[in-house]
């Protein structure tokens, strides 16, 4: 019964096809990304830890964070690590702060900013 109704509705509105998106959708999605990326830029330039140090002090414009090389083997961690684990490494050590949950809004924002500053660089997973 349920199935029939869905089929019927789909036939009645033939313009609402699958996942087709418009220029307006693209603009909205870009704006959503920019909001998160700009939040990441702010966090990256803030004293997130306990010692008044911020990420940009050592990584101006996110330089030397090399997001395109992840995942890669980090000998000090003894395993193939993700970018987010290295973000947490720097947060805990140079910034003497607490690690962020890997799926937190802040972590995603930091990743968005770091990756945006590196746009256009070819992916190079595993590279040192």
């Amino acid at each position: 019964m349920k199935h029939r109704i869905i089929v019927f509705l789909a036939l009645a509105t033939p313009l609402a096809l699958g996942d087709e998106f418009s220029q307006k959708d693209l603009e909205r999605w870009r704006a959503e990304f920019n909001t998160v990326m700009e939040k990441g830029e702010k966090l990256f330039h803030s004293t997130l830890g306990s010692n008044q140090v911020s990420c940009d002090q050592c990584h101006p414009n996110g330089a030397n964070t090399h997001p395109e090389t992840y995942p890669k083997f980090q000998k000090q961690l003894g395993k193939v690590a993700t970018l987010r684990e290295m973000i947490n490494w720097c947060l805990q050590n140079p910034l003497e702060g607490k690690p962020l949950p890997l799926d937190s809004d802040e972590m995603i924002a930091l990743e968005a900013y770091i990756t945006w500053e590196r746009r256009g660089v070819p992916l190079a997973p595993g590279k040192h």
Binding site: Q57, C58, H59, P60, N61, A63, N64, P94, E117, R118, R119, G120, V121
Partner: peptide
């Protein structure tokens, strides 16, 4: 205090 990246590392 700390080392800085060389400007060649910022590609934009």
């Amino acid at each position: 205090a700390w080392p800085w990246p060389y400007p060649v590392s910022y590609v934009q």
